[in-house]
Amino acid sequence: MHLHKYEKIWLIFGVASLILFLTVLGIGAFYKGMQPPSHLATIDPQNVEAHEAFRDENLGLRQVGEDKYIVSVIASAFNYDFGLDEEGSAVKNIRIPEGSTVLFQVTTTDVVHGFHLAGTNVNMMVEPGHISSLETVLKTAGTYTLVCNEYCGTGHHYMAATVEVYKP
């Protein structure tokens, strides 16, 4: 099949940029380890407390090393459960020092939810039967809104919390 000379140039340019884009993505994913969140662990959505990470005492923010934290959350319509504070009321805001490495692990007891820390790359789907997890370094101080960005029912737009990254 005959291709016009300019068309050949155009296609070579196009295919070359395609290969370049894919190479950049591939290096990011496989060499730098920046894969999209794809945690493979499963869980019984009717009984998430059976899993160590989602026991009452482990919910919310836990410090596990000098600059290392784990945040465990149970999502359900229309709430993120971060556990209770000392006074026994539900935690709606967590505070993390700037520069910490934070592992977010989230599951759901009912329908599919979203978990997006707006303005950051902490953005993942939360699905019944699966544990979503993502580790990141929170580099910039500020107050971030945690929003459910997957429709989960009529109260979906009320499902939110805040994460405060403060200068230590």
């Binding site: 068309e7 993505l25 496989f30 945690h39 662990a41």
Partner: peptide, 27 residues
């Protein structure tokens, strides 16, 4: 892409296949 339970290798393979439609778009 941001869903749990799917191996990231297969996600990447399908990303590569997705990019192939750029060729007929350029044509």
């Amino acid at each position: 892409l941001t869903e749990p339970g799917i191996d990231p290798m297969w996600k990447f393979i399908q990303v590569v296949l997705t990019f192939m439609v750029i060729i007929p778009s350029l044509l």
